[in-house]
Simulated assay, not measured.
Amino acid sequence: MATVGLLYVGAVLFINGLLLIGVVDGRAAAPINLFVGALQVVTPTYLIIASGGAPAVVLAASGLYLFGFTYLYVGIGLLAGLDTAGIGWFSLFVAIAALGYAVVNFRLLNDRPFAVIWLYWAFLWALFFVVLGLKHESLARYTGWVTIIQSWVTATIPAFLLLTGYWPTNNVLALGLVVGGVVVFGGLFLLERRRAPRAPAPTHRPPVPAATA
């Protein structure tokens, strides 16, 4: 059930990435955030209730709320025109929590590829904090492309592999994700910096009074 939710996390990340690079309008992106956010809140609630208190199930389900609350927050914020500072600072909380879940997957669950995926999410939500919470909008386009890439690498493709029973938990995949993440996201950052327009040289002109209404 949680794996099905992961598949649609890929969908909402894809749309939100397009939102950040200016392809999708905010109101158009709101419904998918609300749909997936609701799914990511209902699913862990059901899993926890049905678990009979099994610690491993409760632990695995608890992380889903981080994403469910994020998408609900985003969807409501887009429709209501809320300031992004709230979701930005909540994203910092998610980024820090994701580091803990990475350790859990690495040491307790022995799923090292998914531990790296949690690190991917920590990085992405840290970017959300910088762009939305600290208002560094110059990184919005970079964050959008990182979001689009992660929608496939951390959600859609792993979900399909998990659903079909082909998800590997070996160190080779984990190492490949680490190297690939550093190369792709680092190269993308350098590419975005090169394409960013340079500020025009200042011109020495006498000040012009501001126009009045």
Rank of each mutant, 00 (worst) to 15 (best):
A2E: 12
G5A: 09
F14H: 14
I15E: 11
I15R: 08
L20Q: 12
R27N: 02
A28M: 11
F35Q: 01
V36I: 13
Q40T: 11
V41T: 04
T43N: 10
Y46I: 15
S51Q: 05
A56P: 03
A56F: 03
S62A: 11
G63C: 05
G63E: 02
F69A: 08
L72P: 06
V74T: 14
I76Q: 04
L78G: 03
A80P: 07
L82D: 15
T84Q: 10
G86N: 02
G88I: 11
G88V: 06
V94K: 01
V94Y: 00
G100K: 00
A102V: 10
V103R: 11
N105H: 12
D111P: 09
R112Y: 08
R112P: 10
P113F: 05
F123E: 09
L127Q: 12
L127Y: 03
F128V: 09
K135H: 15
H136A: 02
Y142A: 06
W145F: 15
I149T: 06
W152E: 02
P158A: 02
Y166A: 08
N170S: 11
N171L: 10
N171P: 01
L175C: 00
L175P: 00
L177D: 00
V178Q: 07
G186D: 13
G187I: 11
E192L: 09
R193Q: 06
R198L: 15
P200T: 02
T203F: 00
H204R: 07
R205K: 11
A213S: 13
